[in-house]
Simulated assay, not measured.
Amino acid sequence: MRTLLIALALLAAACSPPAQNADSTTATNAEEAAQAPQNPYVAALAGEVQTGAWISRTDEGVTSACFGAPQSECVITVVCEMPSGKISLSVEHELAPDQATTIRLFTATQTFDLPAQSFNEGLPNVTATVADNAPEKTPLIGMLGTPTERFGAEIAGARTVYPWDASVAAVLTACR
């Protein structure tokens, strides 16, 4: 009986795969990570974040969240016009002359382009307007409505990073 148990133990050992070296597993994982495409915006998100605070407001069917330094103008604003379901995103940026452009939004895992228009009269800004039935609406709500530490906007190659806030999600979901 004892001989049978020893034979079974030896057979089981012979059939088991060899133990992997932890260093080789780590090296393999590092090689796979190096080969995986990296989001080019991750480095931008690790950089300087705009300072200020988010302020939200709801008034007569319009909900908005705006971010800026205390006692100054907003540098980014997200607005939901609830009766129409229209969402507007406005970023302080001068792009002259007034022209069609793109606001590229980015997080650590996603990028998303919104068609926009620059306006240089008064406070220069670039604004994207998303109609209720526009194909961009659901992805926009999904991207900025999901909690994240920060997100950014790129306009004509200039990138700005903002802290994310629950008020952004509240505005976007009000127009869902």
Results as ranks from 00 to 15, higher is better:
R2S: 15
L4R: 02
L4K: 01
L4I: 12
L4C: 05
L5W: 06
L5S: 09
I6F: 00
I6H: 01
I6L: 01
L11Q: 04
A12M: 11
A12T: 05
C15H: 14
P17A: 03
A19S: 15
A19C: 09
Q20M: 12
A22C: 11
T26V: 15
T28K: 12
E31N: 14
E31D: 06
A33N: 13
Q35Y: 09
A36N: 10
P37K: 05
Q38R: 14
Q38L: 10
N39V: 11
N39F: 14
P40G: 04
P40S: 03
Y41V: 04
Y41G: 04
A43T: 12
G47W: 11
G47C: 08
G47V: 07
A53D: 14
S56K: 13
T58P: 09
T58N: 08
E60Q: 14
G61M: 06
C66N: 13
C66L: 05
F67V: 00
F67A: 01
G68W: 02
G68Q: 03
P70A: 05
Q71Y: 15
E73T: 13
E73G: 13
E73K: 14
C74R: 01
C74K: 02
V75A: 04
V75C: 03
I76R: 00
V79T: 13
V79N: 04
C80M: 06
C80H: 00
L89W: 03
E92G: 08
E92F: 10
H93I: 05
H93V: 05
E94V: 07
L95W: 04
A100G: 13
T101L: 04
T101N: 03
T102Q: 14
T102S: 14
I103G: 01
I103Q: 01
R104N: 09
A108W: 05
T109M: 09
Q110P: 10
Q110M: 10
T111E: 02
T111L: 01
T111N: 06
F112D: 01
A116Q: 02
S118A: 04
F119S: 11
F119D: 09
N120W: 08
E121I: 13
N125W: 10
V126S: 00
V126L: 05
V126Y: 00
A128V: 09
A128C: 12
A128Q: 01
T129Y: 00
A131Q: 12
N133M: 13
A134L: 06
A134H: 14
P135W: 07
P135C: 03
P135L: 11
E136D: 05
K137T: 05
P139L: 02
L140S: 07
I141E: 00
T146D: 06
P147Q: 02
E149H: 14
R150F: 07
A153M: 04
A153F: 04
A153L: 10
I155T: 02
I155E: 00
G157A: 05
A158K: 15
A158D: 15
R159H: 03
V161A: 00
D165H: 09
D165Y: 08
A166I: 09
A166Y: 11
A169I: 10
A169H: 03
A170M: 08
T173C: 05
T173F: 08
C175L: 02
